[in-house]
Simulated assay, not measured.
Amino acid sequence: MLLCCCWPLGKCAKVLACFDFMIVAFFFYKSFILLMETSNDLHWTTIVSFLFFLGFLVCQALGFFFIVLAARKKCARYCLPRLVLIAGLTVCSLIVLIFMITYFAGSAQSVNNFLFRVYEYFFGVPLTDADKVELKHELRYYGAAFFVLAALFFIYNVFALWLTIKFKQSLNEFEPVPTEPTAPQLAHNPAYAEPPLKSYPNMA
């Protein structure tokens, strides 16, 4: 983000798109390795995470491809896939950030009980009171770390969205058409006079 202060807008937009693609590709690779290692005893969470990162990787690849194409072709509309992707991530990170604020603002007890019920329903393991007390402390630490990550992710997405919009606007700038004549003008002879128009008598 600091280097973007010195780089051109097009280069910054391409670098951020490439960075996002590489991060998602790394998580996709990890989910694929986990899927292969547990292929004999698959769990639904492994399949869902693999499909999620696969779809996310495709979206990031399209955004990266079109932002590079926009820089090469000088076409602003090619920035739209990347803009839609970043706008969606910004909205999602904002929702998560608001949820974490409400969690620490007083709704931690109800959220923890909801998470306990979800865990017991999907994994079929009942939690004792001692387990719930221990998990409440762990969830508080995890929640604080997740809140920091959500805040940083939101700031990053806002910066990437602003940068991509500025890059799109730079491609939309009006370029004046040259007014210089492309063909040589015919020489004008001031001594030449056009012949007078013929007049016809009125036959009425």
Rank of each mutant, 00 (worst) to 15 (best):
S93H: 12
V91F: 14
M100H: 08
R117I: 04
D131F: 11
V58M: 14
A61W: 08
I98G: 00
G63M: 01
Y78Q: 03
D129P: 00
C75W: 08
G124D: 06
Y103T: 02
F104C: 00
H137V: 08
R77W: 10
I101Y: 01
F65D: 01
L97W: 02
P126K: 11
A105I: 01
K73V: 02
E134W: 06
I98R: 00
E120M: 12
F104G: 02
T102W: 03
G124E: 10
I67N: 02
E134I: 01
K74G: 11
I86F: 04
Q109L: 01
S93E: 04
R77F: 08
E138Y: 13
A76E: 13
G106M: 00
P81K: 14
V68S: 14
F104K: 05
L115M: 13
Y121S: 14
S110A: 14
I98L: 04
V84H: 06
L89E: 14
F116I: 07
L135Y: 10
P81L: 14
L135I: 05
L57D: 06
N113F: 00
S110H: 04
H137A: 13
Y78W: 13
V84G: 11
A130I: 10
V111I: 15
I95R: 03
S110V: 07
Y121C: 01
V125N: 09
F66S: 10
K73N: 05
L69K: 13
C92S: 11
L85K: 03
N112T: 09
P126Y: 03
A130S: 13
F114E: 07
C92Q: 09
H137M: 09
N113D: 11
I67T: 14
P126A: 13
L57A: 14
D131P: 06
Y103K: 05
A71F: 04
F64M: 14
C79M: 10
V133R: 15
V118Y: 10
M100F: 15
L57M: 13
E120Q: 14
F65E: 07
D131V: 01
F99M: 12
T102H: 04
A108T: 00
A130M: 04
F114A: 09
F64R: 13
Y119L: 15
F99R: 03
A76H: 14
Y121H: 08
D129H: 04
